[in-house]
Design a protein around this nucleic acid. Structure first.
Lengths: 132, 132
DNA sequence: CTAAATGCAAAGCATTTGCAAATAT
DNA sequence: ATATTTGCAAATGCTTTGCATTTAG
């Protein structure tokens, strides 16, 4: 994946800080602001939290990243991918992407609410195999 | 519904502030902290935001209220009821409860993740009939 | 009467903003 | 060379905390 080209396609400068944020999200899947900061300071000792916030914000706005809200936890960020749901372990905090078919649920919610539905945010809470 | 008895059953004093918070949530369904404050100050001119925060916190802890996270909006609170999903209008912000069957989705998520799942948080985003 | 809750002010975090210096294109 | 980004410090906004006073049981 050529992240430099993607960034430029979105009119964003391919700075080392940005590329490393992307690499980390690609490697770890989901990270919150603090986790990103801790992973980044080694490489960029002068790194400012403000830079992370600004970058997360603009890359989210340009639909390159997505924010995921997990109940009772800090927001985490992930690279944009095809719509999917999340499963969270309440013991260790691990977050897993799950690609499950939500069309029936959309249909049911549409019937009950009479809304025109576009997107969904679905988070399951439970215990992962390791913690079980 | 006798809210005084419910509060006492949970070892919480039935103060006028608490009872009015409950009445408002019962009437409006979902409210955020600011909305509650604005609706409460008329009746309690000396009301402090800290009181609302403390009450929301303890009543949530005692499973009398639930916090609902809506993407890109402030958290709202509702009286505890049977598990349900939420539908939000992206134009006017209206939030509607929908009681839809999520067992198939739980099963699918369990199969994919191998987690033992307990709860889910499901929020749909779309346009309500009035705004359509 | 005593235990809990309220209201105020101060403190604590997370996030945003303004701006000068540095960097990317 | 110009526009964008970075990093710092200050500011903002939301939530929590400590404590004296008031209220509920």
């Amino acid at each position: 994946m050529n992240y430099i080209a993607i960034l430029k396609g979105k009119k964003l400068a391919a700075t080392p800080q940005r590329l490393e944020i992307i690499n980390l999200l690609s490697k770890y899947g989901h990270l919150n602001i603090d986790e990103l900061y801790k992973l980044l300071v080694d490489k960029f000792p002068s790194l400012s939290l403000a830079t992370i916030y600004k970058n997360i914000h603009i890359m989210t706005e340009k639909d390159f990243l997505a924010e995921v809200q997990i109940p009772n936890k800090k927001n985490v960020y992930e690279l944009i991918k095809k719509a999917h749901s999340h499963v969270v372990c309440s013991k260790c905090g691990e977050i897993v992407d799950v690609d499950i078919d939500t069309t029936a649920l959309f249909d049911a919610a549409t019937q009950v609410s009479h809304f025109k539905l576009q997107t969904s945010s679905i988070v399951f809470n439970g215990t992962c195999p390791k913690c079980a």
